[in-house]
Design a protein around this nucleic acid. Structure first.
Lengths: 120, 120
DNA sequence: GCTTGACCTCGAGCCGAGTCTAGGCGATAT
DNA sequence: ATATCGCCTAGACTCGGCTCGAGGTCAAGC
């Protein structure tokens, strides 16, 4: 898969994909004879994972830490799990905060509804 | 209430409070004889609202739009409600995305759990 | 009467995360 | 054979949202 197709598949710009590679979130992607990136299935799997994690607000920095541990083999399992747990806790908190905001929005919208049907 | 106390109450830095005032999210706050801000209850109510909305990922820009409509009286009710609805939709989507990431994190953590109890 | 601490203003600086520009190459279509 | 297209690189730029620094005022305590 070339960059444009990957970009379309995961809804990430080519610029961002190159950026991720540059900063080490992706391994060095294989190139064809003319220097064009050919993304393998495992590259794509990682991209999908990164996209999902970024969606959960996981920072680039945390992903770098996690991914660099992947190369360390089984010795890094505990450390990797610790990162995931920490990110899970952060995500949970963030979701709760967002939910509180959403509830507030709904409450205010209901008030506007009431107000509008009254005034009319 | 002076700025330090407000800051502590809502867990927002004084810098940010001044910034919000500068960009119009807060009205011009009353000053005492020596030029120090004295936040009223209604100022605080608005700060609390802003904090909650920012927690739900509502952009500064959307808040500016909403808040500037408040001065327009009843004529702007429909418009204000429209903003809230739009922000609600965005928040809902964002929460769903975050939840997907959280689920993925939990799934991976479970896998690490299994892996670790096996290897040990 | 001087220090200390909380506050003030203005403008510049910072951070995370991309995003864009310029200049260039190789393959395909006309 | 020349134009066009998709891709390449390096490095600069953007954007949202704060955050900081310098330099200054004022009230209270020693």
């Amino acid at each position: 898969m070339r960059i444009a197709e990957v970009a379309k598949t995961y809804d990430i710009t080519p610029d961002t994909l190159r950026y991720y590679e540059r900063i080490g979130l992706l391994p060095h992607i294989q190139r064809n004879a003319s220097g064009v990136r050919e993304y393998s299935d495992s590259d794509c799997a990682r991209i999908e994972f990164i996209k999902c994690m970024r969606g959960a607000n996981v920072s680039i920095e945390a992903l770098q830490a996690y991914i660099s541990l992947l190369d360390g083999g089984d010795d890094t399992i505990a450390e990797r799990k610790a990162i995931l747990e920490q990110q899970r806790d952060i995500a949970q908190q963030r979701i709760a905060e967002m939910q509180a905001g959403l509830d507030r929005l709904n409450y205010k919208i209901d008030n506007y509804d009431a107000l509008m049907s009254k005034v009319r």
